[in-house]
């Protein structure tokens, strides 16, 4: 399977992958661990991510997945996607469809993804384009709360200790946990498209601005103590808003978020397909169906409040292992051996 991406398509996919699943859930762990310095911690972590992606941009050609690393990533992605679907189901059940059976919700989440994955690759590549429309809706909705913003919530910043900074940073980095997808997708970008320098900076800055906007908004709206009670502060913030024509903006947002989640799922499975079908080409459609069945089964079993909360506690690990350490290890190993993706494809 081979695709060619333009710069815009590449950035849209990465943007979707980074923000899609985590956007409504990252604020609470960052703020409850980082306290009032959370926004500062997030800025520092984002600078680190920028430097990391600059490094990845320079070294992506050494990111070659072997049999073992492919297997490791496949297992991780399978679990990650299953968890994302389970978490999405949990949100939908909690906020808008409490009486819809779990199986029906699973079908609703996975059928569009299956349909897109069985279609040509261009469909999965381009589906994220609608994401942009939703960003404007989201900003508009959140800014409705500006009258209730308490700017003193952001200060003082010196109270957080090193432990707060450490955990705050780990959870902040988790916002960018799909960094390995950058390395995988980068080689499919057309050769004449410039990524490094200003385009990469603008991309990371937009991503960072999007995340920071959400963190600042909820910090301005809720007091520190409230974050111990609310796991999805954006939804609670929107829940408290009322505009002339809509009383529950949170429901509209969840509706939009379901849309975004399915798009992210489609894009993620595109990444899985790109890795899996690089060498294997037989029974492609059956394999995609089986992969969805696996997600269906795993998500079905972990879609419980207790399981989701437990997994979320440890969800700072994936970025460190799969987005940072393993890629750096693979890149270093191949750099020493002098192997690049161009040799590998030959």
């Amino acid at each position: 399977m081979n695709i060619q991406l333009t710069r815009i398509q590449f950035f849209i996919i990465i943007f979707t992958l980074f923000t899609g699943f985590v956007y409504i859930s990252i604020q609470t762990p960052i703020i409850s661990h980082g306290k009032r310095s959370a926004w500062l911690i997030f800025i520092a972590s984002s600078i680190f991510i920028y430097l990391l992606l600059v490094f990845y941009e320079k070294t992506y050609k050494y990111f070659i997945l072997g049999k073992v690393t492919t297997m490791i990533y496949h297992l991780y992605w399978l679990f990650h996607l299953s968890f994302a679907v389970a978490y999405s189901m949990y949100i939908v059940s909690t906020w808008i469809s409490p009486y819809t059976p779990k199986i029906a919700l699973l079908f609703l989440f996975l059928l569009p993804s299956l349909y897109a994955s069985l279609s040509r690759a261009e469909t999965a590549v381009n589906v994220g384009i609608v994401f942009g429309i939703f960003i404007f809706f989201f900003i508009f909705f959140v800014l409705n709360a500006y009258e209730d913003f308490e700017f003193r919530n952001l200060l003082p910043i010196g109270e957080s200790g090193w432990k707060d900074w450490m955990w705050g940073s780990l959870y902040s980095l988790n916002a960018y946990r799909n960094a390995e997808c950058y390395l995988i997708l980068r080689k499919f970008v057309m050769k004449d498209e410039k990524i490094s320098g200003m385009p990469l900076f603008i991309f990371i800055f937009s991503l960072f601005a999007m995340f920071l906007f959400s963190i600042l908004s909820v910090m301005l709206y809720f007091s520190m103590e409230e974050f111990n009670l609310i796991s999805e502060p954006i939804l609670y913030l929107l829940h408290a808003q009322e505009v002339t024509f809509v009383k529950r903006l949170d429901l509209i947002f969840v509706f939009i978020w379901v849309f975004i989640t399915i798009i992210t799922l489609i894009n993620y499975i595109l990444v899985v397909r790109l890795v899996h079908f690089q060498k294997v080409r037989k029974f492609a459609k059956s394999r995609i169906v089986i992969y969805h069945l696996f997600i269906f089964v795993i998500a079905y079993f972990i879609a419980k409040f207790e399981s989701i909360q437990m997994i979320r506690q440890y969800y700072w690990i994936p970025f460190l292992v799969f987005g940072l350490l393993l890629p750096i290890l693979i890149i270093s190993w191949n750099k020493i051996r002098g192997r690049t993706i161009f040799d590998s494809s030959k």
Partner: peptide
């Protein structure tokens, strides 16, 4: 399915 059904159909 309510809103979730519309989201499914829209996608």
């Amino acid at each position: 399915f309510g809103f979730i059904g519309i989201a499914f159909g829209a996608i």
